[in-house]
């Protein structure tokens, strides 16, 4: 009767096994340092232009939207605070993670998927290399290192975008905007703003690797794996951010 649950539960179990093996392999030699740096370049530096662009425009948009709402209370001077809280707590981490998921979870899944269907993964195992150590760990470590950095950059560029609108459109002075923004931040905000991207990085890299390594059925399978990786990673990012926000709101 419950046969329909078998496949998703099996998939979840396989995901936990992959996660366990990946975490164990992070500390176990051999370490493929070159691969880690290569992935940092692809995931971190490669994502930088799009992160800066979206970060900037999200700051611009929030400022414009909020200034209208705040003007009803005569509080446009506080727009820096609203932009800062929204970006650092939520929008920065989530938007950055979604973009990196779209860009890199798909990239990881399609690369590993192609390797799987052309027997390169089997060849790797046959040549005495652990694909988890050689392929999964560098992607996991690189994403976990780069995503928090990208988020910080995105937050800052977003605040700059906000400042641009605040000064040009609302006529606020620099000190007014930046002081409101700075004072709005509590220790709790910084922690959740950095913890979230770290957790999202796990999801993005491991979901990408998981679907990539499970690929079957030739090139069509690679396409399917890529789609599944992006969709799953995006959905999980929203689920996890809700849970984390709930925890941090309670802590406050």
């Amino acid at each position: 009767m419950l046969d329909f649950l078998k496949s998703p539960i099996e998939a979840l179990q396989d995901f936990y096994i992959l996660t366990g093996r990946a975490l164990k392999s992070v500390v176990r030699p051999p370490h493929y340092i070159d691969d880690i740096f290569l992935q940092m370049d692809i995931i971190g530096v490669g994502s930088l232009p799009i992160i800066i662009l979206t970060g900037f425009f999200s700051g611009v948009v929030i400022t414009m939207q909020m200034s209208r709402a705040l003007s009803q209370y005569g509080a446009t001077g506080q727009v820096g605070m609203i932009v800062c809280i929204t970006l650092v707590r939520e929008l920065g981490p989530v938007l950055t993670a979604l973009l990196v998921a779209g860009r890199n979870a798909s990239g990881i899944a399609s690369e590993l998927g192609s390797m799987k269907v052309t027997e390169q993964i089997d060849a790797m195992r046959a040549l005495g290399t652990d694909p988890i150590q050689k392929l999964v760990v560098p992607r996991l470590v690189a994403t976990c290192t780069m995503l928090p950095c990208l988020t910080v950059i995105s937050d800052f560029v977003g605040l700059l975008g906000g400042y641009l609108i605040a000064s040009l459109q609302l006529g606020l002075s620099g000190s007014q905007y930046w002081t409101a923004a700075y004072q709005a931040l509590a220790y709790n905000d910084i922690v959740q703003g950095l913890l979230k991207p770290f957790v999202f990085a796990f999801i993005i890299s491991l979901v990408g690797c998981f679907y990539g390594l499970r690929t079957t059925g030739g090139t069509q399978g690679v396409g399917l794996a890529t789609t599944k990786a992006v969709v799953s990673a995006s959905v999980w990012i929203f689920v996890i951010t809700s849970l984390l926000t709930r925890i941090f709101v309670n802590l406050h």
Partner: peptide
């Protein structure tokens, strides 16, 4: 052991 895979199995 040496192995030759179906399509060569070379790393792209």
């Amino acid at each position: 052991v040496g192995v030759l895979f179906q399509e060569g199995g070379l790393f792209d």
